[in-house]
Amino acid sequence: MKNFAYVRATSAEDAVRKLQTNANSQFIAGGTNLVDRLKVFLNTPVQLIDVSRLDLKFIESMPDWGVRIGALATNTAVADHPQIRQDYPLLSRAILSGASQQIRNVATIGGNLLQRTRCPYYYDTAFACNKRQPGSGCPAIQGINRMHAIFGASDRCIAVHPSDMCVALAALDAIVEVESSRGKRQIPFDDFHRLPENTPDRDTTLQAGELITAVILPPVSFAKTGVYLKLRDRTSYAFALVSVAAALEVRANRIHDVRLALGGVAHKPWRSAQAEAFLKGKLANPEIFQQAAEIALQGAKPLTHNGFKVEMAKRSIQRALTISAQGGGVA
């Protein structure tokens, strides 16, 4: 860890102003991922701007417009919130399947969006890593890549996004609110995280000087059928091998609407638009779910050690859709 200056922001405007005072500044809120990274020299900011005291802890219901969650609401607060549990059980379950209770109590929603991959090659400065040091190489490609991407990877980076919550947010078409000295803007969730391409050092489309202030959950009438299925090497406190967020609206045994997103497979939460398009209007039955799973995994490019993810994702999709079609619940 390098020494850094620590300052507290008094407001969102103050936070973005302070960010401009030094090019090598970073916001810190819960710090559950950033502090770990600082300790192992993945980030060496000159200045940390503590935004944790800003008035962004709200979880507010917007009449006819879903729920607006402040960026500083903790993971626990969101997962346990009665309205989230009732209207967006998928989000609650996704959050509860990640990290540990202690971490969730401190980690914020905004921070969760910005947590970085746990690729072991990224995580140790002894290895080269294009995400950490652009142009240095990606030893994961020839290395142990059991946990890595099967979609959207590049020859520069095969890392996956670690968040469970973000997979649910992708399925729910959430909107990310950000603020900077240039004003406020809203980013559709699918546009928030990005694929590695030639610049894996950038995880998101956030622009310089922007602060996440809130996440909006639009109303999804059938979100109550939402399912989050996470497969991992142990039952708690492990990142997903594959995860699926799914929700179905079934009317008279026919699929009226659907949401389907995968985690643990790409550099961003992986929304399966083609599978969704296929499912709409079809009968809700195992054959259709199987075909949807095949479509969702079309174009998957497994690496040396993660070929199992393709079949695991297909079966998980079928399982999640089956449970959602029955009205949802624990997967």
């Binding site: 746990r118 072991p120 090659y121 995580y123 140790d124 002894a126 290895f127 030893p139 020839q142 290395g143 142990i144 059991r146 090497d233 142990r234 039952t235 708690s236 406190y237 492990a238 990142f239």
Partner: peptide, 25 residues
């Protein structure tokens, strides 16, 4: 504890990546 096949360095680095049973297991 898997080793990187090139550097021989472990690819587990903490108690989150080296999996042993939690209470839930």
């Amino acid at each position: 504890c898997q080793l990187d096949p090139n550097s021989g360095y472990p690819v587990v680095y903490d108690l989150a990546t080296y999996h042993y049973p939690t209470h839930a297991d």
